[in-house]
Design a protein around this nucleic acid. Sequence first.
DNA 1: CGGACAAGCTGA
DNA 2: CAGCTTGTCCGG
Length: 582
Amino acid sequence: MRVLPDVSGIDRCFDYLVPDELGDQVRVGTVVRISLHGRRVGGWVVADHVAPPPGVRLLALAKVTGWGPPPDLVELSAWAAWRWAGRRAALLGAATHERAVPTLAPSGAPPPVAGGPLDGLAAEVAHRIGREPVCVVRLPPASDPYAVVQAVCRRGPTLVLAPGVRQAAHLGLRLRRAGATVAVLPRDWPRARAGGAHVVGSRAAAWAPVDPLSGVVVLDEHDESYQEERAPTWHARDVALERARRAGVPCVLVSAVPTLEALAAGVLLTASRAEERAGWPVVDVVDRSQDDPVRGGLLSERLGPLLRGERRVVCVLNRTGRSRLSACDRCGRVARCETCQAAVVHTADGSLACLRCATRRPLVCDHCGSTVLRNLRAGVTRVREELEALARRPVVEVTAATAGTSLPDAGVYVGTEAVLHQVDRADVVVFLDLDQELLAPRYRAAEQALGLLARAARLLGGRDRGARGGGEPGRLVLQTRLPNHEVVQAALHADPARVAAAEHERRSLLRFPPAAALASVSGAAAGDYVAALGRPLGVEVLGPDDGHWLVRATDHRTLCDTLAATPRPAGRLRVEVDPLRI
DNA sequence: CGGACAAGCTGA
DNA sequence: CAGCTTGTCCGG
């Protein structure tokens, strides 16, 4: 047996003998313990009937721990280790239950899923998945994707991915109520391994066993939580696509705002224009291009009546703290750090702090000594105070720091994008400074901004939302100096294709994914590694920028072959293939 | 990763 | 030169 040890720092296999009494328990994927260099470590069987290298005396496996991934996922882990330039053990770890699984309960095989006739887009999906390997279903934010899931599940055991554990659990419940056998990952891993069940889960479930795999659905395909943040930075959507391709089964990518990666992978199916419009809220564009940039502030006149009513309002501002940029009211100079010249932020305790080098100083202009500083870029904490004055009712601040705590009930919330995860419904969502998203110095900024708008749209429901909210449609208010930006126009016209078209052109021109393949290389050993890459045809190296290099290649094959062919120098090194935030 | 072993440094 | 640290190598 060939075994890959689960030890960071060892990314190679060793051969062992299988004792006769364990023979029937050991197959490709089995989790075992082995003696390696005098110590006992865990590992996976990755091949059997191997010819060991000549001249080595084989040891016997020390123990069989239990069930691991099936052979197809063991093979997929080798592909993913290449694709994301990482250790194979990290991927096999994702494909394995966290606790030992010594035995499996026998699987029954009851009817996979019940349900009535499908209509509209779901019927179209049911029809097309027979002939298209990959379908991209653009479902407006307020639409329920359940019928699409159902359409795929009818074919047999299906892998369904949702961006969060909550959504996955909810979906599992609905499928069960419809009479299906469902394993909700990670809890029901042993049941999934036994086979005959649909499997639902979040990112890691891309590695869940499904037997026999009959189809794959990825919900909210654009959601960035599908990418693992630690290296190897594998993406559940791409793992799902490859799994489906290898198994020869359909893969359905669902999103209100499909990524260019998804659109490049399959055929696009959309609802009718009328249906798509109905699934987006009413959008109010507050054009601030004529407002004074310094004195205008973040709260336009349009907000007053919305805030003072009875409606539940969520305001989004992706800046924490009180002020991210201040200028002296007397001499007009921007407040900067005297040590490193970065802009200083105004902290809650009333001092100025540099986020780059941690220097602090009192609230004084370092040029003219004035103590009056004007707030040019208010953060959430400051805006909460201003909103409360304007709304004349309590305003609750929500940031990533308040996640997991129960939010106080209030009529108005203000927060970073975390507020869109923590509040589950709203009558009005206001993006106080959408330009910050539109102009963010990241190549995916437009897609990411539209993703935020889609998430906000889901809190609001469609423009035809029924009984709840007193019949008034939800409103999405966008404060911007760029009213003609394609992201604003896409939301306004419920037409995400406007962003896709503009982005496709831009990324082709600038050679950003999916028009090229990228990897970000950082860490103390990054320089040595990048030097060792050489300059193969079709590969270029950019940087370093702040200790990060970018490796760009014409396609993933070229990029990943080059990365795989380069030995890793000693020292810290992070290779991030397909970085989302650059 | 972590044990083994070798080479380098310190103090008597 | 013992006793310790630091570095490099390698595992079936």
